[in-house]
Design a protein around this nucleic acid. Structure first.
Length: 317
DNA sequence: GGCACGGTGCGTCACCTGAA
DNA sequence: TTCAGGTGACGCACCGTGCC
């Protein structure tokens, strides 16, 4: 369990290595711990003296694990561990899931962290691929979309932008023509001209489907639409809308549609998983750097404490 | 070289959450 | 209520390392 590992990993170094040691010598009570207020620490010395100390750390650092939910998980986990192995299984998977599901996303946690602590980098908001892409470049993310034109042709859009067009009457393989999406000089607004993969010398040959029409992408996004349009007309004159997948009704078409939807979902989830892992790594890096910073600060505090003890303790005559 | 082992990344599923 | 996105869990593949 990742969170359990984390709790153990980040909880112990500070508490076990230092605080236990400190408690034997002095007792420290914090005051003015509000964010932004000077960190004045009340130090109770062994001699009974109480000293107000302006700490090295001006801004109290929040816990490494920020959210209260996580703290709860931490306690629950420790309790489970402490109370013995016989209780293992008492917290069933459902309960565990319930606990885990309450934790916010990495981005949320890290952004909360970074809003509290200057210098902690925020996880950037997702920038979709489209944002960095010129608007007139068609991004074909749909793995395999099959569209049927009103003329009976099938247009299959495969991953990577390859488009296959087949005539219903022709053999399934022979009737297929491979295409890629590129831009022509001046397509109509919001439309992209489909071109041959094997381009001509100028590389700008439009793709003509039988009937002297041009396949035009009319919209981008999850459910792009395609139009068969006359190549010379700028307006959608004589446009024949490709049948949207939703209007396919035969069992085979429904199955294809289901497959297409599933592939789309899988692809999106694949990307989401990648992004999630990237964020997770970033989050862990952030935590590690915070641990390093806190360890340094802890050392400084201990040194400061030693110095104060030297100052306050009566010198032997 | 072959094998075991641990680490890492990826794809997928299941579930949850927040927005529409 | 529905749906898209986020994320833990799981299994798999690949790679590096140590041991024989």
């Amino acid at each position: 369990m990742w969170w359990h590992q984390h709790n153990l990993c980040f909880r112990h170094p500070v508490e076990e290595d230092y605080s236990g040691d400190l408690e034997e010598k002095v007792s420290i009570a914090g005051s003015g711990t509000g964010r932004g207020s000077p960190a004045v620490t009340l130090v109770q010395l062994p001699s009974g003296q109480t000293v107000h100390v302006q700490g090295v750390i001006q801004t109290p650092q929040p816990s490494v694990i920020q959210s209260p939910q996580i703290q709860t998980v931490q306690v629950a986990t420790i309790a489970e561990t402490d109370e013995s192995a016989e209780s293992e299984g008492v917290i069933d998977s459902h309960k565990r899931r319930e606990i885990l599901s309450r934790r916010p996303s990495y981005r949320k946690i890290l952004n909360e962290l970074s809003s509290d602590v200057p210098g902690v980098p925020k996880i950037e908001e997702e920038k979709s691929e489209e944002e960095g892409t010129p608007p007139n470049i068609a991004t074909m993310a749909v793995p395999t979309s099959i569209y049927q034109t009103s003329t009976g042709q099938y247009i299959a859009i495969a991953q990577g932008g390859t488009i296959q067009i087949s005539n219903p009457g022709s053999d399934g393989v022979q009737g297929l023509q491979a295409l890629t999406m590129t831009n022509s000089g001046a397509p109509p607004p919001g439309a992209t001209i489909v071109q041959y993969a094997a381009q001509s010398a100028d590389g700008t040959q439009q793709f003509f489907v039988p009937g002297s029409q041009v396949v035009v992408q009319a919209a981008t996004g999850d459910m792009p639409t395609y139009q068969i349009r006359a190549p010379t007309t700028a307006l959608p004159q004589g446009v024949v809308m490709a049948a949207s997948p939703g209007s396919l009704h035969s069992p085979q078409q429904l199955a294809e549609e289901a497959t297409r939807k599933r592939e789309l979902r899988l692809m999106k989830n694949r990307e989401a998983a990648k992004e999630c892992r990237r964020r997770k790594k970033e989050y862990v890096k952030c935590l590690e750097s915070r641990v390093a910073v806190l360890e340094v600060q802890n050392k400084k505090l201990i040194e400061e404490l030693e110095t104060l003890k030297d100052i306050c303790s009566p010198k032997p005559d």
